[in-house]
Design a protein around this nucleic acid. Sequence first.
RNA 1: GGCGCGGUGGCGGAAUUGGUAGACGCGCAGGUCUCAAAAACCUGUGGAGUUAAACCUUCAUGAGGGUUCGAGUCCCUCCCGCGCCACCA
Length: 790
Amino acid sequence: MAYDHREIEKKVQAKWAELDLYRADLSDDPPAGGKEPYYLLVEFPYPSGDLHIGHWYAFAVTDIYARLLRAQGKNVLFPIGFDAFGLPAENAAMKHGEDPKAWTYANMTRMREQLASMGASFDWSKEVVTCEPSYYQWTQWLFAKLFEHGLAERREAAVKWCPKCLTVLANEQVLDGCCERCGTEVEEKRLTQWFLKITQHAERLLTGLDTLPWREEIKEAQRAWIGKSEGAKIKFNVRTSDSESTDIVSPYIEVFTTRPDTIFGATYLVLAPEHSLLQDEGFRKPLMNAKEVEAYVEATKKKTERERSENKEKTGVKLEGVMAVNPATKEEIPIYVADYVLGSYGTGGIMAVPAYDERDREFAEKFNLPIREAEFVDWDTVASIGGEKATQYRLRDWLVSRQRYWGCPIPIVYDPEGTPHAIPAEHLPWLLPTDADFTPTGKSPLASSKELQERVTRIFGEGWTPEYDTLDTFVDSSWYFLRYLDPKDSNAFSDTELMKKWLPINRYSGGSEHTTMHLLYARFFTQALYDLALVPVEEPFTERFNRGLIMGPDGAKMSKSKGNVINPDEFVQKHGADAVRIYLAFIGPYNEPGSYPWNLDGVAAMRKFLERIDRLVDRNIEGLTKSLDTGTECKDFVSPEIQQALARTSVKVAQDGDRFKFNTSISTLMILVNELEKQESISKDTLAQLVIMLAPFAPHLAEDLWEKLGGEGSVHKQVWPAAVVIVASEKEVIVQVNGKRRGSVTLAQDASEEAVTAEALKIPTVAAALGGQEPKRVVYVPGKILNLVV
RNA sequence: GGCGCGGUGGCGGAAUUGGUAGACGCGCAGGUCUCAAAAACCUGUGGAGUUAAACCUUCAUGAGGGUUCGAGUCCCUCCCGCGCCACCA
């Protein structure tokens, strides 16, 4: 008889709610006999409205770990919330004429139910919702702190613009030249925007990685993104090149190079078309082909960086009338403007060494410039010509302004002179106005709010104006894990004492797409707040695991157009939430970013496994009842084999769980069930242990079985079975000849090498393999292996 | 192009970190039950070979070398896949 999962899920979920089972008491203190705190974090969802299979994989499997930890006596904080500001809400609002807020809140209601349906043991009392004023008040407060300390700055810069989302983007949100959200190719503009100065933390973001036990690929991706290069800055004087005068024009051109030792081979200089000298009057004066240069600069402006890099054919224009002087050779060398040099990196100018740089060589060959292999010089020589050691990073400052409505208002006002001021804390939360036309036009929707302007005038006076942009949603999510500790506090963003106790987060599970976005931002935020003595740790996440991807049954990425999308609800209806949970956990290791095809038979197989356990308990409960009826002692005999098996399972399930290898945890449980099924009768205690170990994986069925067994309270409050190990008196030793297995002997644990060897030689296959020869050498690993070498 | 991570049956994946390769599950094959089928259960299942049968032999962890008593695991060379970065000087 198959169990009725729908009824069980309903019943036990109500029971858990009634018992308020998953609330973590954060002040529970270890010295006072409390449990050790463990902060388990999973990236909070965007309220998109429907839980898809990826959500299940993210939350249901991480939940297994939360339950394993609780069973092992940890005080587990496993919170959840919603990353609720963001663009899709506005898009939906435009499409259906709904209010972004109404859309967001309706979705959150729906998702809370769905998250409950998977049996996730979140502590909802700690919920944070980033679009609520009680939350974004503190996003604003923290932004103001960063502003006061010079880490937030408004300035003009070349920025990426998404023509579809009609907003600027951070560098991190541009993937292969396209918008991370919608895939549209981005444009470049020069705009005045708000930046968070993450580049000030480049070095610490780099060195901090060395202290973290993360997988190498995550660290390497961040290192590559930060992109540190060490080299030198060298100044080249510039002269007019008419024959009589060798006037020094405009002070000099400074270049950055990672190879200052090749300066003898620098046969020309190249400026990026964006280089400020090209706009400098003094520099332009002697130019004989200023118009041609101007035309080239203009043509480059029309190209995106992507177009510049896709066209590998080198282009450029020589600056006629000026020459640079190589400070090492004192030689006059030509200066070019070429778009293969980027204005946004280094000094925007390079010394070209065509002998050792592929790109310079291509350019030199095309323009017939000299290619000289040179002697290499040491650092003293470089220093003697004015070279200075310099380090460059690829990382750009984080652009956080967004010309969109549904986001956290930037807590800044401008005085009549246009100088920005942080809005004082007493006026926070600085509310998102409700009278703005949120249709994105490229201009900030908040500019259309009368209420906002009136509010500014009322509070700050005539002539003052509000900031109209909202913050990138990645700012909201850069500190949410701090708020979980104290989500309702209206006096502080978090609680100092609780932060000391609960930070850093023990384990953070999420998606690999956040490696060079959210994960980098959150580290920066934490470091910055650490410097302001607002948080007690420099690194927020001790361990980080990127989970893999669930693919369609055909092995391809799920997409509506391919028709291979798996809807978890169908499987939950048919096989139950527990079967889906176990299937997702069994599919492969959770700590590796692999991609796993959804196997249609897989969930059914997991359901069968659960039914076998259900039957096993039922069958034996009958037996237990009978023995009670006859008055015999119920606590019956447990064979050493079963005791051994229980001990083995208890250790291995917990160990593998700790490595996020739930697949082998479950296979270990399967092996135990296979063994138990062979027993004629099983004691109640044995069944109880099985059910406790099943509970993290199949929380609903386990709770039901626990009740059947007459257990007190909830199975999820039980402690993990202690491993009662029986020390075997005998041990099997593998016998090898020349490293190949030829048999085995079972002898006393402490048998001597001689005794094992003597016994091994009696095995016919061993004797045959030896062919009558005496072993030249014997390798004995006590209790494991005896290798006879001939 | 640079860096990182991988490559194990028909499939997802195991392998105590140098010690019986292929756990567990899917799939497949055969069987029990049935008039039949489904479900359920049982048995088998890397290739090749010897055999009455094998707890027998042999080959096998992308390819080729090496270290070692012993290598999926360590080292070298190469091939392939995935990820990140990429005209970053």
